[in-house]
Amino acid sequence: MEAVAFYIFAAIAVVASLLVVGQRNPMYSVMLLIASFGALAGLYVLLDAPFTAVTQIIIYAGAIMVLFLFVVMLLNVEREDSATSVATMVGPTGMKLGAGLSVLLAIEVVWALSRLGESHFGHDAETVNISSVARIGQALFTQHAFAFEATSILILVAMVGAVVLARRER
């Protein structure tokens, strides 16, 4: 039962993500990305992490994708031009950089897959507790307090930057 659900969610996530890249209509890309996030949330539920699943939906599928949708909607982007090929768009330096990055990604994937057998996620008390909201909150504000505060400052800077950019246009 769980395995069936896993394969369904995984298939949706992979197919939707591939279609996001393959899609010419940006509006459909956004909707497919939301579907992909939803499937990921389903996978988190299967991992006994309902809190992570719900935050995934609220933050990514809910908040961030609404922003994407607004941008696509208001810019009124028509279908992407299919005439220009990728090579002319990014230039020779970009091609080299892209090739380097994809090799790096391939190496990382192979490395991660080779270590798949080493990690073990048991259903003992320790792992079950990690998914509890109270435990996440405590870890966030004690162990990871610095990273948490640093992230908030980063977000604040981005917000101030956005306001400054928006005001300059007037």
Binding site: F51, V54, I57, I58, A61, G62, A63, V66, V133
Partner: peptide, 13 residues
């Protein structure tokens, strides 16, 4: 056990 957040998530959908 995260019912309130579920309501939020669905409302945002």
């Amino acid at each position: 056990n995260v019912a309130i957040l579920v309501i939020f998530a669905i409302a945002s959908m």
